[in-house]
Design a protein around this nucleic acid. Structure first.
Lengths: 330, 330
DNA sequence: TATTTGAATGTAAACGTTTTCATTGCGTGG
DNA sequence: CCACGCAATGAAAACGTTTACATTCAAATA
């Protein structure tokens, strides 16, 4: 079995308390004994039993990352970002999703109540009331990655959806497009809501009136985007360009174009949001709004670790800025 | 603080031992007391402290998943598969990568020695000697997801790279192509090696002689694929079709085609391996070998959990079968 | 010299759970 | 009616670590 401080204590002829202190760099230990203990620990290849330590200190350096799903590069990048920071600080990353058959709340509660994780990162485009209630009772620090800053409740990171959408629609208007349609995401999804607001504001500021038949609700999937696009292009008065609330639906527009034998960007133009990996290989390249997802993860993890180390600064609500990527699709 | 078995014991007027037994469904507890204890536990919203439990039992229901990198849909799908099975069995998934600045070995040792994880899934295309040595000393069960079955050492899951590559090259030969080139992956990468072997065997079986100048080493990246493709197409005697060892490099061929103003599949054809998400949206759709990556993850997790539960069957070396996906790229 | 200080170390409790080894009490067979 | 066995429960140790409190010893102060 693995070596324990007991064995080190025996060899160093000191008590386990001294060993513990020495290994934790307590100032009260004479530097000579400290050196001795450390060298013995090294020799024996000692590794502290983190379970025992967490158990007694009631602190865990495991960070729980709860997501609605584990799929696609968005979540992947989040995990990567979180893991990177965790690794740099000696923390561990535990991931899970709500697994369709359980609610987000159950997933969170599971993580919070077992005593395993010492901090929580919750990634969800929509913080529902029951989730809020659960979070409010949390004894461990947590950070929310969300579509919208949950001001004054928890630390949060969110994408600047509004300005991202604004920038792309504004670009379209400046380019001379007048008939600008929008395929939104799910109704209650905060990312989607904010992006639609940005769309509307950009139209307004450019003196373009909103045509309700040009705003169609999608579901963030390729199929949804395709259906929405076909609906739009079959209108008596079809739009010149479609701003899809995410790239997946924009890809759906490409598929629809092939079906309808229409050519992008000559017959109609397309723009998306997220700038996912695929988008640069679409033909023509998709104009989109780049989101530094990785930074969402690193920021969340950094803030959380600070909190876990006792940081008591006021609640932070970080907004991650986006960048317009211009392709040949419009 | 959270409720403990002590409080339950007090309320039920029994000892903590009985509570522990009752909650663990020990047969020796009278069913009436068991019922009482469980109802009280329920009432108090009791959750066992997993740290304490793992600490005393020396078993952890946390599975460590170590990967060379956390990037792209391949790893994402693995994580998803592992998480799904873990969730279904009440296990937890902890992920990490080797983070470029530490070796795979360090990452593994870190996970093994801290007592946190009770089982390990190691995902790597190449099990090097130092890793082997480390794994050999492991006290906890582990499963390897690799490019090649490490027979008789550890349970392993691997992709049937050889037959996957064989099937696509055989398809090309049957279609009438004679000049079939290959862009391989990194030299020591097992996935790459097996795929090249499949390529060679398929040529042989179809009576096609191997032309060494048509085999170029790539690095699994888009840029590498592009460079390799340009090298090939600038030969005096360029090939008719290129089989790239993965889809990323196949995408590089598309990029090269654009540069060279060549048209796929008329000027030259392309096939890949992996059937990544992007591939279906390339124009024309990429012919590739589909790999059920998700199942790699679920299989690995399932085998590992069985081992953690005391399964002592002989070592398993599972090979995951592939499927040829025919697109318009050849 | 007697007392105080403080640095260095030791003692032992505590964390929540499982588990081994008693202990109790009751029914059954002789 | 005694002994035995068995079902049900309890008492207490154990896991590895941290930490509050106690102790020691020597140097510094009065």
């Amino acid at each position: 079995m693995a070596t324990t401080i007991k064995e080190i204590a025996k060899l160093a002829k000191v008590s386990i308390a001294t060993v513990s202190r020495a290994l934790n760099d307590d100032k009260k230990v004479k530097s000579s004994t400290k050196k001795l203990i450390k060298s013995i620990a090294n020799e024996l290849n000692y590794n502290p039993n983190l379970l025992a330590r967490s158990f007694v200190t009631k602190k865990s350096n495991i960070i729980g990352l709860v997501m609605p799903d584990i799929f696609g590069e968005f979540f992947m990048e989040i995990i990567r970002g979180v893991d990177e920071i965790c690794y740099n600080h000696g923390y561990y990353t535990m991931v899970t999703s709500s697994h369709s058959n359980r609610s987000m709340v159950e997933a969170i509660v599971d993580y919070m109540s077992k005593g395993i994780v010492g901090g929580l990162i919750l990634m969800t485009p929509l913080v529902e009331d029951d989730v809020k209630k659960t979070l409010a009772s949390s004894k461990i620090p947590l950070v929310v990655i969300s579509g919208k800053s949950e001001l004054q409740k928890w630390d949060s990171i969110s994408i600047d959806n509004f300005n991202g959408a604004y920038s792309v629609v504004d670009y379209l208007a400046e380019k001379g497009y007048k008939k600008i349609a929008h395929i939104s995401g799910p109704q209650k999804n905060n990312d989607s809501i904010q992006r639609e607001l940005g769309y509307r504001q950009a139209l307004k500021n450019n003196g373009i009136e909103i045509n309700k038949s040009w705003i169609v609700t999608g579901d963030f999937t390729i199929n949804g985007g395709q259906a929405a696009c076909e609906t739009l292009m079959k209108l008596e008065n079809p739009p010149e360009v479609i701003f899809a609330s995410n790239d997946m639906m924009a890809i759906g527009c490409y598929v629809a174009a092939r079906h309808l034998k229409l050519k992008i960007p000559v017959d109609f133009a397309v723009a998306g949001f997220d700038d996912i990996f695929v988008s640069q290989f679409l033909n023509p390249r998709l104009t989109s709004v780049h989101v530094p997802i990785y930074e969402l993860g690193t920021n969340a993890a950094q803030i959380l670790i600070n909190r876990m180390n006792g940081n008591n600064d006021p609640i932070q609500n970080v907004k991650i800025l986006t960048e317009l990527i211009v392709g040949g699709s419009c």
